[in-house]
Design a protein around this nucleic acid. Structure first.
Lengths: 211, 211, 211, 211
DNA sequence: AATGAATGAGCCTTCATTCAT
DNA sequence: GATGAATGAAGGCTCATTCAT
């Protein structure tokens, strides 16, 4: 991709393979971006990052191990990002909207990672790390519910079952982002960027839960 | 695909052929239910329904042909089912809610087919029948928009961009159903049936679009 | 090995690949003769007999399937051969000696197959066809015991437990043949052919069981 | 293999090193007991005994080095054990029988090691230490022949070729022990312990060689 | 319409071995 | 003496697909 003409050994000293593990994950993401999760093959990864087959197995155990590791990395990055937005928000309405816009902004900023999250979830859920995924999802959900709880008790929010919360608040924005990401890969045309409807989607979340 | 020299279409009883075709599709669905869309292999299907490799190719041309045929069968069945609910609804609010409950009831009635729809969409979109899928999605969407249009002009609905409509109306229910279907396969516990929140989800759709 | 200069299509018309299954087994035996059972690899077999990977799997399911099939083929061939000698023998002493010489002659006549039988037994016993092996061994053993029984009751043979019979009668000849086959592969020198001690080994069997 | 610059052999406590080496051999035996000699892999051993890959190579040079070292350890242990029984025996008949019972008792006392000896012989014979094995086998054999010689000359034993001796004397007991060890791994049922037929097997050896 | 043998690319994985620290 | 990351050859297996019958 970036063909370096002047090696200049002092300029890029250890950047290339400081972290083999990270190199491999980056290569895996590149594979997935090009051909979907199924396109993450040992040989494809190897060809992209220069690691040997054995090295990949040394770090990740097997093919699914790569996909799962990448999935959790991205999943946690996303959670952190949204949580940061939520923490910065003032008031109930701003908080609910921050959940939506924080998510939306993250997706728009790194569409490839977002697409991977959608695509790989099924594979990870079906694999050996099912419990890890369940735990991660539970934690994220609980953080959300914990944030909602006081506002519900204060009467600012409707009295809705907590299992429903994620779908009501995040359903529309996820639905739109998913559709946008799907079209983006195939062709250039289609749906406008989620940013276009940033306000509308945030508003929809608020309408769904406001008392 | 196979050029027949003696067509004589009237001589052949259509029944037998139809059964074989349906057997194959049923077997494909069973494979997918057990191991995801990727688990739909020629040999897996063959083992389940007793058809020969050649027979499968005769009917569907290639592997993706099976997945696509099954996908469109289910897709249309779902569309028909939701449309019937919508047609039966009286008034704007009932109509919006019928979209949600029609979808929800269909999912609950045939969870395996619903799960297949979620799983296979990506594969079909990436395959040779991309245009067919685009056309089918366009038609379904247009029917929905056409239904909304008069009510929007009458002021009963908010003036929202039509690209946003599907996500606002169907986003929450799809989100919840998807989560429910995911958990159903792995474990016994987890999310309550969508039926439990039928009213809430229908209500959420109405809140999202009411003026 | 044998380079044919004149193809002469009429001379060897269908010999080459009339029976793919047999071709594959022959190739497998050749692999084993060269490098032991472990040297029976899909690719090695493929290279020797010209069959495709898929074809091999079509016939034998997996690598162990080839080894097992070859093992049972040879095992039964050996049993048949020894049994024929036994049937032809007149009297008790001649019968006991026929068991030994029948075995010995078979080994000397086809040392590669005999060596394969020794080498592969462990793998077959450890594999999926354990029950088949147990059954085959049981049958062979029972045939032997059934032959001995009347002579034991007539007092011509010692009253020995039937589990011991195979080891007492066949132990020495098997031990010698095994040692001979082991040396044969590595070097040229070493043990004389079992034929050299044909009489002595037959006599040893008779001494072990005679009253 | 590893050139040491500062040997100082007196400074290093030999105990630690010995333990490590023994740990590795024990782990190798455990691997073999579970899945045959082929299952003795560097990584398998490492996982069982906690030694690092490098440490294993330091002690044994390469994979075959482990198998060979273990083989010779066991081989010599067995030889020593049988020899001790032979030395303790009084007279010709007792001596011949001691060879059989010494062997039999050793096998029954350590079946896993005995099984390893059967399984690994081929691999060791085919490896780099072929001459060591040949030498060890020659020595053992010669000791046996040397013991027999005077008794043969005194007319107590038959005048048999010395290549035949091992098979005549040890064939039956080895045959039975081998069969017993094979069954032991797979199932619980099957052949009675060799101890059951201790007397019969010893007697068979005597019958085979007595004048 | 149906059958099933044959094909070969492509994938995952294991394994012995090396080497810098 | 010990450690563990890295290497790459080699092997097993799956799978979509073709084709003669």
């Amino acid at each position: 991709m970036a063909s370096r003409i002047t090696p200049s050994p002092s300029a890029v000293p250890a950047e290339a393979s400081t972290d083999r593990r990270q190199d491999i994950l980056n290569a895996a993401l590149a594979c997935a971006a090009e051909g979907g999760v199924d396109a993450v093959s040992i040989d494809g990864v190897r060809a992209r990052c220069g690691a040997s087959v054995g090295s990949i197995y040394h770090h990740f155990g097997n093919r699914d191990g790569i996909v799962a590791a990448l999935f959790f990395d991205i999943f946690h990055d996303q959670s952190r990002s949204v949580q940061a937005q939520l923490d910065a928000a003032q008031g109930v309405e701003a908080g609910v909207q921050a959940l939506v816009t924080g998510y939306l902004d993250w997706v728009v900023a790194q569409p490839e990672r977002a697409r991977f999250l959608f695509q790989a979830r099924g594979a990870v859920a079906a694999g050996q790390r099912t419990p890890d995924l369940a735990e991660a999802a539970r934690r994220r959900n609980q953080a959300l519910v914990a944030w909602f709880e006081p506002h519900r008790q204060s009467g600012a929010l409707r009295d809705l079952p907590c299992e429903l919360m994620p779908s009501l608040v995040m359903g529309p924005v996820q639905s739109y982002c998913r559709a946008w990401l799907s079209e983006r890969s195939g062709l250039g045309g289609g749906l406008p960027s989620p940013t276009t409807y940033r306000a509308e989607l945030a508003d929809a979340a608020w309408r769904a839960v406001t008392a």
